[in-house]
């Protein structure tokens, strides 16, 4: 059951991702495809027993970050998206080919490896694995310094974004 749900969510995620990259007409439609991918990945996280992270995935990525993208697209009113194939270059095609080949290699490698090739599998998970209590406890004890550092990062990013996007010197 959970395996089939995983395949379903994975298929939605991949289709959404492809839709985002290949949709060349409409940036908002791209963003919606990305939302589908994010929500599907939230489902995959829950299937992998990462309940807290799965909820945050939907809440932060789909609910805030992509809304920000869409907001900027609307703010700048980017109705037309330039993707003329005439200006496509050999470099891009080569890049796509290299990425595709590397991807095929990686996926083939991952799927042909026996399950025992990845060491350290645990059969039984601890009680409450992936819940907000255990993740929170880890975050506020072992990784407290990293947590505090992220607050600095967010502050600097916030100041930076305001400085960058603000209109300067009343040029309206």
């Amino acid at each position: 059951m959970s395996l089939w749900l995983f395949y379903a969510f994975g298929a939605v995620a991949v289709i959404g991702a492809l839709g985002m990259v290949l949709n060349v007409r409409n940036a908002v439609a791209s963003a919606l495809c990305l939302v589908a991918t994010m929500v599907a990945l939230g489902g995959v996280h829950v299937l992998l027993e990462a309940y807290f992270v799965g909820a945050l995935q939907v809440l932060v990525y789909a609910g805030a970050i992509v809304v920000l993208f869409v907001f900027v697209v609307m703010l700048l009113n980017l109705r037309r998206d330039g993707f003329p194939p005439a200006r496509a270059r050999l470099g891009r095609v080569t890049a796509a080919a290299v990425v595709g080949a590397a991807l095929a290699g990686l996926v083939g490698l991952a799927l042909t490896l026996p399950e025992t090739a990845v060491p350290g599998a645990t059969a039984a998970l601890p009680e409450g694995f992936g819940g907000y209590r255990r993740v929170g406890a880890a975050l506020f004890t072992d990784y407290l310094l990293a947590f505090e550092a992220t607050s600095l990062l967010l502050l600097s990013a916030m100041v930076g974004a305001v400085v960058l996007a603000k209109r300067r010197g009343g040029d309206a």
Partner: peptide, 23 residues
């Protein structure tokens, strides 16, 4: 276990209805 987070996540997703309609 994380019911209220689910509520907030769904609330965040409801933004898209208004956004997409306007766009």
């Amino acid at each position: 276990d994380w019911g209220i987070l689910f509520v907030f996540a769904m609330g965040a997703l409801s933004t898209y209805g208004a956004i997409v309609a306007g766009w």
